[in-house]
Amino acid sequence: MKSCLVVDDSRVIRKVARNILEDLGFEVSEAANGQEALDVCKAKAFDSILLDWYMPVMNGIEFLRALRALPNGKGPIVVFCTTENDISHIQAAIEAGANEYVMKPFDSEIIQAKFAQVGLL
């Protein structure tokens, strides 16, 4: 079973994402901001990470840069999932090492399509 860490400061979004990902056969963990996610990632290697942009404490792009700098940080497939939908944000995410990018609002179809695209399904 593949694992996915859902990183979002909204409990509702985490819940929605968890339901979708569990239906797709993922083992889901949650983190409420970038720092929490980074701590979890130091202890465990995830197959994939679904990542929000704006969060308190540490935002998504800071987390992604820190993750990719970790010894095993290149491993997880990172899919951004954010309301930021302009080219400059998307470009910045790709440069920081994001594999895919979902623009909110999302639904199960989009998550499924994106996860299939990056070879997670």
């Binding site: 080219i87 998307i90 623009m103 179809e109 989009i110 695209q117």
Partner: peptide, 20 residues
Amino acid sequence: SQFEVQRGLPIQLLVKYFKK
């Protein structure tokens, strides 16, 4: 629409070939 460009289109190709 945003929905349409998220179905099947890799994000790298969206950035490369589309304008908002």
